[in-house]
Design a protein around this nucleic acid. Structure first.
Length: 415
RNA sequence: CGGGGGAUGGCUGAGUGGUCGAAAGCGGCGGUCUUGAAAACCGUUGAGGCGCAAGCCUCCGGGGGUUCGAAUCCCUCUCCCCCGGCCA
């Protein structure tokens, strides 16, 4: 959530920055006005409450002194009416305010490039060169036309489209990758955690998936729980409503989970193969830091994911997302795109984001600083990596002319 | 899923209508003592909002109600624990 006080103070500046994310300035103005109005009405209410509190305390005194109570009682009954009216106004304003505030995305960092979408993202660097083939490399589903490794047909039979069954070496490789990634991340100082795959509404509001993206989530209606779209949600929410000790920061976590997404807006996109699934495995990184440390940790996370790809021998590039492509909660995002020889292009395999205090404010994650002040932390998240996409990247990059594929050296101990 | 019991500050836990934002203990922080530490002793210690400040307001799981006044009474929802059943 935006800092409403900052919005009130520096409206022009914030509105200008949010233009990068295509936020309607009129809506922002409305938000600001609601905030000012709310503060005014609230202080009016508080004055009335102060009167009520003070005078109510006279009752025991009057009784002791044997004074008449009726006059006082009448007065307070009247005041009570005023309080009720004011309270209703305050509550309505609050509801209206939060309905809007929760729908406004994070402010992009200064260095986030302008742009409307993917085509305006800025390549930062390329790592490793894509492999050369003496034949025309195939896409992963072409490598395996009979569904020996990736059984799309049976995935559909069991659930619906965008579900896949992994078999033989692919199933083994999936599991090996998960273990390899977690071990790799642990060496970089990220602590392994195992978390629930179902979370409640509050958790999803805190990390920014709700209320805006309800349609992207699988929901268990009768339980009021949602399947996690990413481990970022449970990992970040671990610290919701907590005040952390300054010495505990930064907290750096890694976790493997399955992830579930409805892919509501992706009709027709990547329908073939395993690029875009309703259920996929991912090893995630999450960090909770002091505000002054979040940039440093951000680049640590980018390096962690990039080095991981390099260790698997996968050519990739780093791309900084432009304002228009930036996610709802992110102030800055670097995508890692891995080379897919069959598609002859780079595709996203990891995304590292700094949300600054945006999620922390929603989730009320704070720390006590050296002056004993409670301050919001910064939260960061990144994939390291999307396991299914890594699997097919390996299949494509390590493919041989006969359709078989090699296994990267570093994974062999894991098989 | 059936039966019972709960939800109070970082934790344990007292508080059943009136200066209760809340006893006590633990923990944390500061100090005394000590070469240093432990122990002991003393002090201090919830969060949010408004305000230059003094100060005021809100918060005892969430929501609603009764009352001049609610942590305390009523309604409702959620969650947790125990016993039994089922089960990885």
């Amino acid at each position: 959530m935006l800092d409403l006080k900052a919005l009130e103070k520096n409206f022009e500046e914030i509105a200008a920055k949010l233009k990068k994310k295509k936020v309607d300035e009129k809506l922002l103005l409305k938000l600001k006005e609601l905030f000012v109005k709310l503060k005014k009405e609230r202080s009016k209410l508080e004055n009335l409450q102060a009167i009520q509190n003070k005078k109510s305390k006279l009752f025991p005194v009057y009784k002791k002194e044997g004074k008449d109570i009726n006059e006082l009682k009448r007065e307070l009954e009247e005041n009570k009416e005023k309080i009720a009216v004011s309270q209703t106004i305050v509550r309505d304003l609050e509801n209206e305010l939060y309905d809007i505030a929760l729908m406004i995305p994070n402010i992009p960092d200064e260095d986030v490039p302008e742009g409307d979408g993917e085509e305006d993202n800025v390549e930062i660097k390329k790592v490793l060169t894509p492999p050369q083939f003496s034949f025309k490399p195939k896409e992963h589903w072409e490598l395996d036309p009979n569904g020996y490794y990736l059984d799309f047909k049976r995935g559909v039979k069991l659930a619906k489209s965008r579900f896949t069954v992994l078999k033989h070496k692919a199933a083994l490789l999936e599991r090996a990758l998960i273990n390899y990634m977690i071990d790799f991340n642990k060496k970089r100082g990220f602590e392994e955690v195992a978390v629930p795959y179902l979370v409640n509404r509050e958790s999803l509001i805190s990390t920014g998936q709700l209320p805006k993206f309800e349609n992207d989530l699988f929901k268990i209606e009768e339980e009021n729980l949602y399947l996690i779209p990413t481990a970022e949600v449970p990992l970040t929410n671990l610290f919701r409503d907590e005040i952390l000790k300054k010495d505990d920061l930064p907290i750096k976590l890694t976790s493997y989970t399955a992830c579930f997404r409805k892919e509501a807006g992706s009709a027709g996109k990547d329908t073939r193969g395993m690029i875009r699934q309703h259920q996929f495995d991912k090893v995630e990184l999450v960090a909770i830091t002091r505000p002054e440390d979040s940039d440093k940790v951000f680049w640590e996370m980018v390096s962690c994911a990039s080095d991981l790809l390099s260790s698997l021998g996968l050519a990739h590039r780093l791309v900084m997302l432009c304002g228009g492509d930036l996610g709802f909660s992110a102030a800055k995002t670097i995508d890692l795109e891995v080379w897919f020889p069959g598609q002859n292009r780079y595709r996203e395999i990891s995304s590292v984001s700094n949300t600054r205090d945006f999620q922390a404010r929603r989730a009320m994650i704070r720390f006590k600083d050296e002056n004993k002040k409670n301050r919001l932390v910064h939260t960061l998240n990144g994939s390291s990596l999307a396991v299914g996409r890594t699997l097919i990247a390996i299949m494509e990059n390590y493919q041989k002319e006969d359709g078989s594929f090699e296994i990267p050296e570093v994974l062999k101990p894991y098989l």
